[in-house]
Write a protein that binds this DNA or RNA. Structure first.
Lengths: 195, 195
DNA sequence: CAGATATTATGAGCTGGTACTAAAAAGCAG
DNA sequence: CTGCTTTTTAGTACCAGCTCATAATATCTG
């Protein structure tokens, strides 16, 4: 019956750390009404690292997570690009991109993929989407690797008409037409040199 | 110039920490070929906290960031909802939602907001976007609070025609028309082809 | 050369630990 | 109650990665 106290404390400890992972052993000891040594012992048996290690792994995880978000921001990986002509990108649909209920990819990922690619194709410093026309043809599930192809159909002064088709396994799952407006201010591209 | 050396070192120091924020003073000292004390002094003058503090703030930031991403997944906050009739949601455009170059919100956030709302309005277990028709009227900058209003214009068997208008400060910045298809058993069969 | 600036050295003290040893307290069994 | 085990607490030595302060040395500059 003695160990039940310990078990309860272990659970409390885990919960406390979940709520606030930045607690020191001393704080935890006070919160649980036991000595610091007991907390240390508990941590060892539970395999919980010390505060600094916890903090550190969190920070490291965050770094990679931030990078992942950055990548997501690109919405697809550029494979080929001919400015003002065409562009090709891929995007792998991961489990967190699908609707829980259906297991089908949220529609805006395809939109984002197509839109991003369309914007990339336009050779302008600043470009904005004016109009979009999209059609979802086949639902996409997690694990699918999408390939988007954007083609500039015609250009009129500052307006680009772009057609984008997204395929999965050579089957067209999505298509879109965009009108992109360039707001180019003749900004010069500066090549950055490292000192 | 003596201080130029210092300036260069300060720049190098910043870059090194940007590349790897988990360096100790000792490692930095070795990398820059100076003593540990010099690094400490540099950090003080540059206002750079020690490794532990850096790690910690990174971890703390990460915590709040994860929450932000979770929220982002909702793509807007639902304010009002009448199934099969209308829905209203808001979305605050934060600094990380805009294009660096232009400071204008990436178009797919508005699309995602509108699309999510449109899907929410549909009273069906499983619903998919079939067609979308969007128009960006006014560029949106960071800090703007968007309000989206979705109205079901008409319904035909399993298809919902939904009109969405997004306003910022009572000015329409975006509008979209969606055709949403609710999925029944028949549609399920078609989906199974994929696997 | 002196004087200023920059760099390095040195040492005390702090936090939040680990690792280890040992003693005290609690639990329970016969 | 006595003995034995488990659990908890205490104490010491040691570590990383610092801060803070103080002083010495190196380097540059007029």
């Amino acid at each position: 019956m003695n160990s039940s106290k310990k078990l309860i404390r272990h659970k409390s400890l885990k919960k406390l750390l979940k709520d606030n992972p930045f607690s020191t052993d001393e704080q935890l000891a006070q919160m649980l009404g036991v000595s610091v040594q007991t907390i240390r012992l508990d941590r060892v048996t539970l395999g919980i690292p010390e505060l600094r290690a916890r903090t550190r792994t969190m920070a490291e995880d965050a770094q990679t997570k931030v990078r992942a978000i950055d990548k997501k921001d690109i919405v697809g990986e550029l494979l080929d690009l001919e400015l003002n002509k065409l562009g090709i990108s891929t995007l792998k649909i991961s489990a967190d991109m699908v609707l829980e209920k259906t297991g089908i990819a949220r529609g805006y990922y395809m939109f984002a993929m197509a839109n991003t690619l369309a914007l990339a194709v336009v050779d302008a410093e600043q470009a904005l989407t004016a109009v979009g026309n999209v059609k979802y043809k086949v639902p996409v599930s997690a694990g699918a690797t999408l390939v988007a192809k954007a083609v500039v159909t015609h250009k009129r002064i500052d307006k680009y008409y772009i057609f984008v088709s997204i395929k999965s396994n050579n089957e067209e799952v999505f298509r879109a037409k965009f009108i992109i407006v360039s707001m180019d201010k003749r900004a010069k591209q500066e090549r950055e040199q490292e000192a």
